[in-house]
Design a binder for these strands. Structure first.
Length: 573
RNA sequence: UGGGGAAUAGUGUAACGGUAGCACGACUGACUCUGAAUCAGUUAGUCGGGGUUCGAAUCCCUGUUCCCCAACCA
């Protein structure tokens, strides 16, 4: 058996601490409950795109299999043809692969088991534990009773086995209309657990299925199907979310009634994240109402959105490891996700310089037509990343925010009369400012000290700031997209009367900056390449380009920024 | 007013009757050619009330609060 920390190669070794799910698995291995076998599965319904909450479940299931020398299947729970689509199947496969998990040849579909499920249904009828019911959906609801009152038995409950088998077959053969009949489990209408009150096993749905087409017009319900799927695949630990805890008795009941392999269902709490909505229904709403550009909008918590935003699989996996797993609802601070992100990106992202809100900087004492190439380090945390050349000349762009005419005490960037370093280049001293009619700064004039080439002063003189810059003549134009929280509230569902979560959408969640300059080394970057723009943040090349063919950089996350923090604190005062 | 779960610093998460620890955040400071990273430090917790015990976050009783369940959704 492999200990979890031995797969933990991106963190310092830690003591072997099992979460409660792994504890159960470890105990089962110790006691030989499953013959030393560990087999999990990730069972998504293909009715939407995967999000970071699914990543938690994926990492749990695939992670446990990997750590305990077991297997994990990918199985699509495609029992409702009215909601499911091939597009979702494809995206889910892509996303899980991208996260780095492998199900080898074990890609399964619940729809592959429809024949066998039907046979199991017949078997249950024969055992007198299922019957065909003619009650409408509404009547079924009435008969079910309420949370505090027992239900009453359907009048069709006592049909003979023969009649039930015949009717069930007719259901299958399409002799009834949608909703006309159902197959129900004959369970206990007085059960305190409402799920046990003769739950529907099959409903009639004359709908084309994305895989089985028109082959079926009856489709199994989750409660009936899910346990069978797990059983058929020989799953040992059927890990699911908390809301299925109430369904476990039924899960157990079906499998015991059939005398077939009976996995253990274990429930854990879903992931909640601040400033994020996680339900597929709400994400679908954002997409369908055009409130975002699509499932892969970089502001979405979908894996495809996060990928486009620039998240790395490692960051997400490490996040999932860090948050742990438990049985009570909690909301993870988005800052923890950002921490995991920066931790990985800092190690892996090459550095470059880009100016996203440019103002011209003219070095008056630098020769007119001269230019030179300066050495820059690609990644200070990774010497093997090497060096690159960055062009420099008389006219540069720097960040508008890096200059202040009347700097407050704590501002130690460029200001009139002040000297700063241009990264990897020279010390420059501000001598003058040129403004336009509106009073906006057009140019900042400086002189440079040629003895400081490379960025060090031979006389040991210190500067308080180092600015990033880009050569006006030799840089490339790019578009940069800055993202912020999609919602303004930590809990987006907290809305006023008559409003819903969309009322909390952040109007400033996307800012497009179209006049940005990137150093020429970035010219041949490709889709989804990640880079750190020094002093700005981590960015990722969007798969699309602007209409005029310039690259688009999505800001994944800012660098931690104590200056911005200080400014914010100032504003609050 | 039925049933099923759960409660540990601001947020997560350990401690399995024996010193309440870790991470994130926040706040100091050191260092720095990224106000980044790194390093050092500070901050702050067992839901309440009873019991059992030499000793309780852990066991018992009791109260409180929160989540889930009455789709022919999953």
């Amino acid at each position: 058996m492999e200990k979890p920390e031995s797969t933990n190669n991106d963190q310092q070794p830690c003591l072997p601490k099992y979460d409660f799910v792994r504890q159960i698995v470890a105990d089962d291995i110790r006691t030989g409950k499953w013959d030393q076998r560990t087999h999990t599965r990730f069972p998504p319904e293909p009715n939407g795109y995967l999000h970071i909450g699914h990543a938690k479940a994926i990492c749990l299931n695939f992670g446990i299999a990997a750590e305990f020398g077991g297997k994990c299947n990918l199985r699509f729970d495609d029992t409702n043809p009215t909601k499911e689509e091939q597009e979702y199947v494809d995206s889910i496969i892509e996303d899980i692969k991208w996260l780095g998990w492998d199900w080898e040849d074990r890609l399964y579909f619940a729809s592959d088991y429809f024949d066998q499920m039907y046979e199991y249904g017949v078997e249950l009828i024969k055992k007198g534990k299922a019957y065909v019911c003619d009650l409408t959906a509404e009547e079924t609801r009435e008969y079910r009773g309420s949370l505090t009152e027992a239900g009453k038995g359907s009048p069709y409950r006592s049909r003979s086995v023969e009649e039930n088998i015949e009717l069930f077959e007719k259901m299958k053969d399409g002799e009834f209309k949608d909703g006309e009949k159902t197959l129900k489990a004959k369970n206990d209408m007085a059960s305190a657990n409402v799920n046990m009150r003769d739950p529907v096993m099959y409903r009639i749905l004359h709908a084309a299925h994305h895989r089985t087409g028109d082959q079926w017009c009856i489709y199994p319900m989750y409660d009936w199907a899910h346990g069978l799927e797990d059983s058929i695949e020989g799953i040992t630990h059927s890990i699911c979310t908390l809301e299925f805890e109430n369904h476990r008795p039924l899960y157990d009941w079906f499998l015991d009634a059939l005398w077939i392999h009976h996995p253990q269902q274990i429930e854990f709490a879903r992931l909640n994240l601040t400033y994020t909505v996680m339900s597929k229904r709400k994400l679908l709403r954002l997409v369908q109402d055009g409130l975002v550009s699509g499932w892969d909008d970089p502001r979405m918590p979908t894996l495809s959105g996060m990928r486009r935003r620039g998240f790395s699989p490692e960051a997400i996996r490490n996040f999932c490891k860090t948050i742990g797993v438990n049985k009570f609802n909690s909301t993870i601070d988005y800052a923890l996700l950002e921490h995991c992100l920066r931790q990985d990106l800092n190690k892996t992202s090459p550095r470059a310089m880009a100016v996203i809100n440019p103002v011209k900087l003219v070095i008056d004492n630098y020769p007119e037509n001269e230019s030179e190439e300066l050495e820059a380090i690609n990644n200070p945390d990774d010497p093997s990343a090497g060096m690159r050349k960055v062009p420099f000349s008389k006219e540069l762009y720097i960040e508008r925010e890096d200059f202040m005419e009347e700097p407050p005490k704590k501002f130690f960037r460029l200001a009139p009369g002040r000297e700063v370093r241009l990264r990897y280049a020279y010390f420059v001293k501000c001598t003058d400012v040129v403004k336009d009619e509106k009073g906006e700064i057009k140019e900042i004039h400086c002189t440079y000290d040629s003895a400081t080439r490379g960025g060090d002063s031979p006389d040991g003189r210190k500067v308080k700031a180092t600015l990033h810059w880009v050569c006006a003549k030799n840089s490339k134009s790019a578009q940069v997209r800055l993202y912020d929280y999609l919602f303004t509230k930590e809990n987006p569902d907290q809305a006023e009367e008559g409003e819903d979560f969309t009322a909390n959408l952040n109007p400033d969640s996307l800012k497009i900056l179209d006049n940005c300059f990137i150093e020429p080394s970035l010219a041949d970057c490709g889709p989804l390449d990640r880079v750190q723009f020094e002093r700005l943040g981590y960015f990722c090349v969007d798969p699309e380009r602007t209409e005029d063919g310039r690259p688009i950089f999505n800001r994944t996350v800012t660098l931690r920024d104590t200056w911005a923090k200080m400014q914010k604190a100032q504003q609050k005062k």
